[in-house]
Design a binder for these strands. Structure first.
Lengths: 212, 212
DNA sequence: TGCGAAACTATACCAAAGTGTGGGTTCGAC
DNA sequence: GTCGAACCCACACTTTGGTATAGTTTCGCA
C-alpha cells in the first residue's frame, strides 16, 4: 500500500510528496520521478489510505488523481480543509472536465494537470506547491506564536490591548472601561510584557495577526 | 459593434458587464439576460473593440470568450493586468481545455464557464465578480489615498516615519539619522499631521499600505 | 476556610512624546 | 537677489506613558 522509497537525505522536516493514485504503475513512476530529483515521495492507493497511514504533519504537498476509489479528489480536498490541514494540493486527471478544474482551482489547488503531462510539468508544480507550503507554515507559525502569547492575557488585558491598538490614549481607555488611568497603565504594561512587544508599533502588528 | 441596451437605472458608478464575444446572437442573448436582472451590459465583438470603445473605468466585470478574433482571451487578461486594470474577468468557452482553464484561473479569473451553461451560472459568476470588483476598488481607494498623503512628505519625514513605525524611540531615530532629538520631534509632528494619523497605531496601519 | 489570581487604586517619580517660539543654514526658482 | 522650502537646533513647557511599591476587594476553588 505504501511503496515509498526514500531519497538519501530525509527527516521530519524535509518536504515530501504524498502521491495518491489507484494505479500502481503510475504510483511507481511518480515515486521514481521524485527520487530522480532527490525528493522524497510516499505513495498511497486511496485518500483513505493516506489518512490512515500518515499524519500529514511533514511539510510538502499532496499530488492526487481526481478520480479516486471511494472519495472524489475534490471532496477530499475540502475534507482536508475542514480538518484544518492546509497542505497544498496538485491534481492529476485522465478524464477531467472544465467544471471540475474550475472547482479545484477555486478551492485553492496549486495546479490541475491533465494526463498525459510532461515530467517537468509535475516537478514545476511540486516546486510551486513546496514554496506555498513553506509560506503557509511560516505564516501559521507566526500566527500561532502570537495566539499563544495572547492566551496568557486576562480579560481586562485583552480589552486594554484592543483599545491601545485602536490608538486610544490611556485616559480614554480608562473612561471607556470605567476604571482609573493608573490601572490602565498597569494593564498596558502587562500586555506589552506578555505579548513580548517592545513598542506600540510592534503590538499593532501582533494584534493584526489576531484579527484586530 | 456596441449593441448595449441600458437598464432603467444607470450611471457612471453602477456596475456594468462588458461582454466580449464574436457571435452576435450570443452577445444579444447575454445582454438580454443581464437586462432581465436590471444589470447594464455593453457588448463588443472583440477585445480590441472593447479597448477602443470603453475606458473600462466604470465598476463591473468582463465576460469574454477565450477564443476571440485576433487576440487570445488569456492574453487579453494578461494585457489588462499590464495596463494596471484589475477588473475581474469571467471566461466563457465552447472549445476550452483543461490547461487553458488552469492558466486562466491561475491568472485570477473569477470563473471559467464551459458552454453550454445555465443562465444562473453566469449570473452567479457575475455577482461574485461584482463583489470582487467592489472589494478591489475599496482597497485601491484606501491605498491611493494614503499614497497621496505620503507624497506630501519630504525625504526626512519619510525616513522618520519609517523609523517610527519600526517602533524606535525619538532618541534612537535621532542617533540613526545623526540629528538632534528635538528635530526628530519636529519631523514626527509633521508626519502625523501630513499623514492625517491621530496615533502611532494609526500611522502603522497607513504605513503598511505603503509597503512598510 | 483559606489561598491565589485577577482586578483595582494610590502615591511618587522618571522617561518619552508633543508643542510653541525663535532662530539658523542651504539651495534652487523666479 | 530675494523668496520659499527643506532642514536643522535650542529653550521652555505640558501631556502622556511607564514603572515601582504598597495595599484592597472580589471570586472561585481546593
Amino acid at each position: 500500500m505504501n511503496d515509498a522509497r526514500r531519497p538519501a537525505k530525509t527527516s521530519s522536516d524535509t518536504p515530501v510528496v504524498y502521491v495518491v493514485d489507484d494505479d500502481p504503475s503510475i504510483r511507481e513512476a511518480l515515486v521514481d520521478l521524485f527520487l530522480s530529483v532527490q525528493t522524497e515521495a510516499q505513495a498511497f492507493e486511496s485518500a483513505q489510505a493516506l489518512l490512515d497511514n500518515s499524519d500529514l504533519k511533514r511539510p510538502g504537498c499532496i499530488l492526487l488523481d481526481v478520480r479516486l476509489p471511494g472519495a472524489n479528489g475534490l471532496d477530499f480536498q475540502l475534507h482536508l480543509e475542514k480538518l484544518g490541514n492546509q497542505m497544498p494540493v496538485i491534481f492529476m486527471t485522465g478524464h477531467g472536465d472544465i467544471p471540475m478544474t474550475v472547482r479545484a482551482m477555486k478551492a485553492g489547488a496549486v495546479d490541475f494537470l491533465a494526463k498525459p503531462f510532461r515530467d517537468q510539468d509535475i516537478l514545476d508544480a511540486v516546486a510551486v506547491a513546496f514554496q506555498k507550503d513553506r509560506d503557509l507554515r511560516q505564516q501559521s507559525a507566526a500566527n500561532g506564536a502570537v495566539t499563544e502569547l495572547a492566551k496568557t492575557l486576562t480579560r481586562r488585558e485583552h480589552e486594554v490591548m484592543a483599545a491601545v491598538v485602536q490608538g486610544l490614549m490611556n485616559k480614554q481607555i480608562a473612561f471607556n472601561l470605567g476604571i482609573s488611568e493608573i490601572t490602565v497603565k498597569l494593564h498596558r504594561g502587562n500586555v506589552m510584557r506578555k505579548m513580548e512587544a517592545r513598542s506600540v508599533a510592534d503590538l499593532v502588528r501582533k494584534a493584526e495577526l489576531l484579527g484586530l
